[in-house]
Each structure stands twice: as structure tokens, then as C-alpha cells.
Amino acid sequence: MMETILEIRQLKKTYPDGTEALKNINLSIKRGEFIVIIGPSGAGKSTFLRSINRLSEPTSGEIIFHGEDIVKANRAKLRKMRRNIGMIFQGFNLVKRLPTVRNVLHGKLGYMSTWKGALGLFNQEEVEEALSILERVGLEDQAFKRADELSGGQQQRVAIARAINQSPSIILADEPIASLDPNSSRVVMDYLQKACQEEGFTTIVNLHQVDFAKEYADRIVGIKNGEIYFDGPVKELSDDVIQSIYAKGKEAMPV
């Protein structure tokens, strides 16, 4: 019943300075899964997520998305594939001087002709959709405020709205709550989870907080030293496993 939406094979990433951030990642992701990636700092979580939409160019490997290899896509093709992949960042990455609604509208850029998009000529349908998505993340009253006038949690919800507006089939979130207080973190995670359930998005989230991971994830992937160290449902993630994921050094432990 569940088709595979993303298939990652032998993904490797070596940075120009020689850092082997990803050594050999193989992962198969099914439609509608909510995956949380955990792992110590420097394990390669961000690199992994950013390799999926090629914000960071993979060194080798295959990333099959909807039956096509992202790694092999040319520029135009990559643009088309990227609009199907929403991305949420730790730093929100909104255009701070623009109103909230315009930031949400940016999610549609990939669907517009270059010049229409560049000049910001959004039509009524697009604007209304953006406004209704803002309503869904509880920000209908902030639509015309400048993005930098919102609180961090609100800004992250705008970023979620922007990603939803892409109508993606998959959402990548790189530590979306790392710079938020616990309350806003919960609100943001709730909205993210709600959007994904309602829209049937497949979701991959990098998190530092294991408790949050356990609470929201269907499946947890532990990354350590650029390799997958654990992969399974939440209930299999025992305290021992957690401890060894975060333990320093490379003591051998079977997956």
C-alpha cells in the first residue's frame, strides 16, 4: 500500500577540505512517513538533508525521487524537482523586509515563469491560497506585517506556510526548533505535524531533542560519523541505543 517516494543509494559527500561528511547512506522512504533524524553534532545530519535537494552537491550516489535521479538532473530539471521538496531551516530564512504573505507567496516561484515570479506578479488565486495557508498556521492576523516583526516561532510558521505553498510531496526540516523556546517549539512541531498529516506530506526532520523525536516521529534514523547507525520505529529506540548514538568515539555496535 505504501509506495517508496524517496530512495537513497550509496550517497557520499566529501567536502572540498576532505571532510567525509556522508560515507555511505542507503535509505528508503515511504510516502507519508514522518522521519526524525537524530545524531551528535557534526554527524552529517544537515549535510544529508541538504544533499537531498542538492543545496549541497553529493559527491556520488543516487537519490531517486518520484522515479527520477535528482543527482543527475540538470539545472532546469533540478528546479522542477526542488519545487516538490519543501525545506525548512533553523534560521527561518525569510526575506525579513517583506511582508509575511509575500514570503509565503515565494513558495510559488518555482511554478511561475521567470519574469512573472521575479517581478512578484502573483494573481488573485495565488494570493488567496497564500492567505488561507497563513490562516492554517494561525497567522491570519500577521499577513501584512513585515516578517522581521514576528516572533521566532511565528517566523518559523511562516516558513512552514511557504513550504506548504509549494505543494510539495516531501518536506525537509533542518533543526526547525533549535533556536526556539520550548513552548514555541511545541507549537511549531504541532503545526508541522498537522500540515503533514492533512496534506499527506512525507517529512524528514533533523532534531537535537530526543524527546521531541520520540514524540513526533513514525520512524527514527540515527546518524553517526556520516553513517546510518540506527533505523527503526520509535519503540525500538532504547536508551542504550540513544546513548551509543551520542557517545563519543566509534565503539562498534551492531545496528
Binding site: 519543501g86 531551516f89 515570479g117 521575479a118 512578484g120 511557504r162
Partner: peptide, 16 residues
Amino acid sequence: EALESAGASKVQVILQ
């Protein structure tokens, strides 16, 4: 990065 990952082209990223 945010706009690029939404599929925006270079010109769009710069102007928007």
C-alpha cells in the same frame, strides 16, 4: 538557499 530550494531561478532569487 530558501528560495533556491523552493525552485526559484537565479533572477527570481535576486529580485525577490
